[in-house]
């Protein structure tokens, strides 16, 4: 009986999580611009209208451009920062790490406001690059932290061996360190993309006249947006879920040979470390 109640509670939590998402999808198929009941009939016109919606398409491509730039720069510079901080003494690296992470932990609108003030002061006109810079302030720390954590767990003897054998720092990084952190960097990139593409709170303060995709939705909500937004979001949502499932499956298959032994090792280590 108790476990029955538990299951009901557990499943209703999922209902709470998914009811809103299903609502979006259902109203993408409703033949009315007013998103309320009663149901006015089934239609695909919101889906079919997407390609002709110029502003929507341009906000999508602009948003994607911004996110690709943000992901690329975060990955390269974030990894570089992690590597350069990793070699330092703990104190220096902790202070600098904390300083880089600050923007990622302040409330979004405080960050947005401070950046808007600073960019205005520096004479940067609002537009693509202010958005990219602004988003970098909270995506780069994520990449940096994730990579730094991974670097600290690497076996230092491999790097020492490579240097002893006469490899330059660069060659050591490229042939010894990077292959070991590659999957971490890829995972961080995926995370960064989702952080960037959907960001509104900071971006709102930094955008010029061309909106990103979420800013476009935001502008639309003032007029009560048409279900075309529901349709495009349903498509994006379904696509990303499919991608996630595929990615998880691929990663699991790739990692599997190690997965078991490493979890066993980790749990044994955990057992001994609890105090």
């Amino acid at each position: 009986m108790r476990s029955f109640v538990g299951w009901v509670a557990f499943l209703s939590a999922y209902l709470f999580l998914y009811a809103p998402l299903l609502t979006i999808g259902v109203f993408a198929l409703n033949d009315s611009t007013v998103q309320a009941l009663p149901w006015s009939g089934f239609t695909l016109r919101w889906f079919l209208g997407i390609p002709d919606n110029g502003p929507l398409i341009s906000s999508l491509t602009f948003g994607l451009t911004v996110s690709v730039l943000v992901v690329t720069i975060s990955a390269v510079v974030g990894t570089f920062f992690a590597v350069s901080l990793n070699g330092r003494g703990r104190r220096t690296s902790n202070v600098l790490t904390a300083a880089v992470v600050i923007p990622a932990i302040v409330p979004g609108m405080v960050l947005g406001l401070s950046l808007a003030i600073a960019f205005r002061y520096m004479g940067l006109a609002p537009g693509m690059w202010t958005i990219v810079l602004g988003q970098l302030t909270f995506t780069l720390p994520v990449v940096m932290l994730v990579v730094l954590t991974r670097l600290r767990r690497l076996d230092p003897s491999l790097v020492q061996a490579s240097m002893d054998l006469g490899a330059t720092r660069w060659r050591t990084f490229w042939h010894v360190v990077f292959p070991q952190i590659r999957s971490t960097v890829v995972a961080a990139c995926l995370l960064t993309f989702t952080l960037s593409f959907d960001e509104v709170i900071v971006t709102f303060f930094l955008a010029g006249t061309q909106p990103t995709f979420p800013l476009f939705i935001w502008a639309q909500t003032r007029f009560g947006f048409t279900p075309e937004i529901n349709a495009i979001v349903t498509i994006i949502g379904t696509l990303s879920v499919v991608l996630i499932v595929i990615a998880t499956a691929v990663i699991e298959r790739q990692v599997d040979p190690y997965a078991q032994s490493s979890t066993r090792r980790r749990s044994r280590r955990a057992d001994t470390k609890v105090h």
Binding site: P20, T23, A36, L37, I217, F225
Partner: peptide, 28 residues
């Protein structure tokens, strides 16, 4: 676990907007 995280991949604004559809006077 995945099912709890999936909503994060749906646009934040749209997730907020969906509550308008659910809670409105002629809402669901």
């Amino acid at each position: 676990v995945l099912l709890v995280i999936v909503p994060l991949w749906i646009s934040y604004l749209v997730r907020v907007y969906s509550w308008k559809i659910l809670l409105g006077e002629s809402g669901v």
